[in-house]
Nucleic acid binder design. Structure first.
Length: 423
RNA sequence: GGAGAAAUGGCAGAGUGGUCGAAUGCGGCAGUCUUGAAAACUGUUGAGGGUCACACCUCCGGGGGUUCGAAUCCCUCUUUCUCCGCCA
């Protein structure tokens, strides 16, 4: 959520910056300002009435204590109309505040200066590429064929148990997945991220805190009986650890890593590109989350990008980094780098990580603040990234490491797997 | 799941329906003292709205109610603790 006061002071700046997202924010921003003015005048009126009635109540109390019951009763008569007015104004204030809040929820974050203009993923800017794309023999298979051939992932079995998009990993496939999780967590903790295990279901407040609610409501599995949501990413529980907190400036940097399954309804996405592990309803992910001082958040973002690069380099997977354009940038992010691994047999790039700085957008919703050097409280910056998402990394390994004899295991994973070949 | 108790500032812990945003202690911060530190003493120390700044308003787990007036009374939800039941 954008900061109201900042909008009030620089509305044109916001309207301009949001153009990069290809939206005309002017009507919304103007309405925000209007609603805010309404809210404030109502608040002032209400405050005055409350002040008056507080004073009357005190006077009545004093009169009672001095035994002047007649005078007290007389004063009581005067409180009736004040009560009515305050009730009416209170309702108005509530409505104005809620309307304003709902509107603010609808305005996306302001893109960072470096975010390229553009309307779709076509316009994302490639900023880095590393790793040679292997040349495979002509009979190379896509990962879903390999999964079947070596009996390591069973998609049909998952259909029986749950439905499409819920794979069953078997034997060396399961072990490889577990190896990747451990490897990722080890890399992250070695870099100073504290490992946490967090709930996989979150309440409504957490959903609002990180911005999945209200705009992505339909993408999350919702347990209506208990009003809980299955997490679409570890970002939600981990970042919400800090909701409603006022940190000390010395607490930075806060860095956490968590392994969690992720659940996504993926309503409306079907077709050839969702085959195999490409798009699932349940998948595993190791997430890194940071809470940072505003002055340091972009340095932190760079460090997170570096962290993901190192992992991919060690896995010897060919990858590229994209800076997302305004049209492709997530609702809550100010700047996002996507990592894509080249999936050789599918001949396409697969997104395996997304690293973002949300600046104060989430913090404002989370009420995540810190006391700065002058003792004033201000909003912190939040960041997160995948390090990494499992299924597509797995797909990349299966496809890129396939040989005529089987699938080779990347060297760094051999100690974690206990085998060096799937055949 | 059943029965009971509780929820107050960073923490601990008072609080009779009126002058309680809330005693006291600890912690934090500033100062005095000291070569320095500790101790002692003095002062200060929640959040939000509002204002140029004050004033003023809101918040004692959340929501609602009674009352001129609620931390205090009532209803409800949530959470925690104790006992019972079930259970990885």
């Amino acid at each position: 959520m954008l900061q109201l006061q900042a909008i009030r002071e620089n509305k044109d700046l916001f309207i301009d910056a949001l153009k990069k997202r290809n939206i005309d924010a002017a009507p919304m921003v103007n309405e925000v300002i209007q609603l805010d003015e309404k809210r404030r005048t109502t608040q002032t009126q209400l405050d005055n009435i409350l002040a008056e009635s507080n004073k009357l109540s005190k006077d009545i109390g004093a009169l009672y204590q001095n035994g002047k019951y007649q005078e007290a009763e007389a004063l009581k008569q005067k409180t009736g109309s004040l009560k009515e007015d305050s009730k009416k104004l209170g309702d108005e204030l509530k409505t104005a505040t809620e309307t304003l809040q709902a509107l603010l929820y609808q305005i996306p974050n302001v893109p960072h200066d470096t975010v390229p203009a553009g309307t779709s993923e076509e316009d994302n800017e490639e900023v880095y590429e590393e790793g040679a794309i292997p040349v495979l023999q002509t009979d190379a298979l896509p990962h879903w064929e390999l999964a079947k051939k070596y009996d390591i992932i069973d998609l049909e079995l998952g259909v029986k148990i749950a439905g499409a998009g819920f794979p069953v990993y078997k034997g060396k496939g399961a072990k490889l997945q577990r190896a990747l999780i451990n490897y990722f967590l080890d890399k992250n903790t070695a870099e100073g991220y504290t490992e946490v295990q967090v709930p996989h279901l979150v309440n409504e407040a957490s959903g609002y805190g990180t911005g999945q609610l209200p705009d992505k409501e339909g993408q999350m599995y919702h347990l209506t009986e208990d009003n809980l949501y299955l997490i679409p990413t570890g970002e939600v529980p981990v970042t919400n650890m800090f909701r409603d907190q006022i940190l000390d400036v010395g607490d930075f940097p806060l860095q956490y890593t968590a392994y969690t399954p992720c659940f996504r309804r993926e309503a409306g996405s079907y077709g050839a590109h969702v085959r195999g592990l490409n798009r699932l309803h349940q998948f595993d992910k190791v997430e890194i989350v940071r809470v940072e001082h505003p002055d340091r958040s972009y340095a932190a973002l760079d460090e997170m990008v570096e962290q993901v690069k190192i992992i991919l380099r060690e896995l010897e997977l060919p990858y590229r980094i994209l800076r997302l354009c305004g049209g492709d940038l997530g609702f809550t992010a100010a700047l996002t780098y996507d990592f894509e691994v080249f999936s050789t047999a599918q001949d396409r790039w697969l997104e395996i990580s997304s690293v973002s700085n949300f600046e104060t957008y989430q913090a404002n919703r989370l009420k995540l603040r810190f006391k700065d050097e002058n003792g004033k409280s201000q909003l912190a910056h939040t960041l997160n990234g995948s390090a990494l998402a499992l299924p597509r990394v797995l797909a990349g390994i299966l496809e890129n490491y396939q040989t005529g004899d089987g699938i080779r295991i990347p060297e760094v994973l051999v100690p974690y797997c206990g085998f060096d070949m799937i055949s």
